[in-house]
Design a protein around this nucleic acid. Structure first.
Lengths: 138, 138
DNA sequence: GCTTGACTTCAAGTGCACTTTAACTCGTAG
DNA sequence: CTACGAGTTAAAGTGCACTTGAAGTCAAGC
């Protein structure tokens, strides 16, 4: 199996070597074996990295992402804590999607808006206040 | 028209007085008139505040939010810059929604997943990789 | 043997969105 | 008159997710 240096992994994964070291210190990436002090990764690391990026980009903190990952890499232990996190995060992600959806609608309607102050735009207020369209991706 | 102190505005709007002063320094909130050095707001401030919060919570930075607000409060001037920002932000919001959607799907499928490592879970990988369901809110 | 380039560690720095602190001013109540 | 609570400022501090800098290690090429 091919061994990769931190530079190669960084280049291919599209992030910096320092970020990889940071993830390792933070407990998100397992410490790989060394060849004369230098890290040697296998290609399995890319799956882990995209999992980490997916979580971080969706708004998980480093600590939550660690817990999220440990909810799977270990067999039984932190199930309760992980489950609690997942439920809470699911709510947060729902809220995030709702805000993003409203902001999108806002940006789109703002192209039509000719009001002097956006706070007074009827069309905008309708867009900004609309509650979740619960049918979509719910 | 009723005049409100910074404390009353903060309490009613659900944020801190220091945040309001910070928004003012950052050019998001207009500097209100003073009664013996103390800020006196009218109720119109609440509309502005919810606009600010909506933008910030959807991922706008302070600078972008300022530009966003100025795109409306002024009649003609920064239309081009604002329009460019809006288009770029619309893309970012789309990306954010896509990530949030995938994270949501991920959290939901993870409740079913019994794989030792999530990176190897077939069901999960299908969920994480699925591209935008372009029909929804597009 | 010396240089080069990619790696190593540890500590300190960065940018954002605020918050906290210290020292101060007011208007009001006792 | 004093004390109190709520407001004021400028400057420093906070937490997060990294990045940068300094000083060193190591294998390969000249």
């Amino acid at each position: 199996m091919k061994e990769l240096s931190i530079g190669e992994v960084a280049r291919e994964a599209g992030l910096s070597a320092s970020a990889l070291r940071y993830y390792e210190r933070a407990g998100l990436l397992p410490a790989p074996p060394r060849r004369s002090r230098q890290r040697r990764y296998t290609e399995a690391v890319f799956g882990r990295i995209s999992l980490i990026r997916l979580a971080l980009e969706a708004g998980f903190t480093i600590g939550e992402t660690r817990l999220f990952l440990s909810g799977f890499s270990e067999q039984t232990p932190p199930a309760a804590r992980w489950r609690a996190l997942a439920v809470r995060k699911l709510e947060e992600v729902n809220a995030l999607m709702d805000r993003a959806r409203r902001m999108k609608l806002l940006l789109e309607t703002s192209f039509q808006c000719r009001c002097p102050r956006l706070e007074d735009c009827e069309q905008f207020l309708r867009a900004a206040k609309r509650k979740p369209t619960s049918s979509c991706l719910g």
